Amino acid sequence: MLVVTERTTVDTRRDQIVEAARRLLAADPESSPTVRAVALEAGIGASTLRHYFPTQRALREAVLDRALEEPPSELAIRDSSRPPAERLTECLLQLLPPQALVEELPFSRWAEALAAVFGPDATAESRLAWAANGAQLRRRVAGWLAVLAEEGAVAPGSEERSARLLMTVVDGLATSRILPVARHDAAEELQVLDDAVAAVLRGRR
C-alpha cells in the first residue's frame, strides 16, 4: 500500500513545478522563464511556487539538477532516415550542460562541484563516483557508435577508441560552457562537434 506522507506531497509538487519549467525551456531553449510563466504552466499560483522555490535561482538549479540526472535519449541515433553525423552530433549535444541554465548559474556553483571531486578535501568516494559516471557515458557513446557501425558508417571495432575521443571533446566543451571567460557560442560548439564526429565516421555525412 502506498503511504502518502507530507514529504511525498512536497516532492510531487516540486516535480510538477520543475517539469513545467522544463517544458517552457524545451519550447524556447534561449528563454529564461519567469516565475509567473512557470506557475501558469504548472497550474498553480505564483505564491505557491515561491513556497517551494523561494528564488528564481533555486528553481533554475533544480531544473539543471534534473537535466543532469536524466539519461540522454537514444531515439535519434536509431533514426536511419537521417545522416549518421547529424544523429551522432545531436546525441552528443545532450551530454553538455544546458546552455540557458548554465548562463544563469554563478560560476561558484560549478567551482564547488569540481572542488568536491578534485579539491584537497575530496573523498575517494567522490572521485570514484566521478570516474564511474565518465565510464558510463563512454559506454553509452560507444553504444551509439555500435549502432552506426551496423550501418557501415563507423569502422567495426573502433567504437571504444572513438568513444574516448568524442568524450574528450565533449568534456572540453562542457568545461568551456561553465567557465565565463572560455565560452564558445553555439555555432562554434557545433563546428567542434562536427569536426570530431567527422573524424570517427567513414566520410559519410
Rank of each mutant, 00 (worst) to 15 (best):
G134C: 13
W110E: 07
D121S: 13
T123D: 05
L93A: 04
P106R: 04
D79R: 09
A116L: 01
L96H: 04
L128V: 09
L114A: 12
T123F: 05
R109Y: 09
A132Q: 15
T89S: 14
S126K: 05
L88R: 07
E86Y: 06
Q99P: 00
S126A: 14
P106D: 02
A116I: 00
V102H: 02
L105V: 07
Q99S: 06
A124C: 07
V117H: 01
C91L: 07
A113N: 04
Q99D: 06
R87I: 11
A132F: 10
E86N: 02
A100V: 07
F107G: 08
P83K: 10
S126V: 02
A124E: 15
L96R: 04
E112C: 01
L95P: 02
A129M: 13
E90I: 09
E104I: 00
R87T: 10
A122I: 12
E90M: 11
L96P: 05
T89D: 12
L101T: 03
S81C: 08
P98M: 12
V102E: 03
R109S: 07
W110R: 10
V117F: 01
D79I: 01
D79K: 06
P120T: 10
A129D: 15
V117I: 10
E86I: 03
S80H: 15
L114W: 07
L88H: 08
F107D: 12
A113D: 08
W130H: 15
L105W: 00
D79W: 03
R109M: 06
E86R: 08
R87N: 07
E90K: 08
L96G: 05
L88E: 12
L95I: 01
E112L: 09
L114H: 08
F107W: 10
E103P: 01
P83L: 11
L114D: 09
E90G: 11
A131V: 13
E112Q: 11
E103I: 01
D79C: 02
G119L: 10
A115N: 12
A115W: 05
D79S: 05
A85D: 14
F107C: 06
T89N: 13
F107A: 12
P106H: 05
P98F: 08
A111F: 01
G119C: 10
L92R: 02
E125V: 14
A100F: 05
T89P: 03
A85C: 11
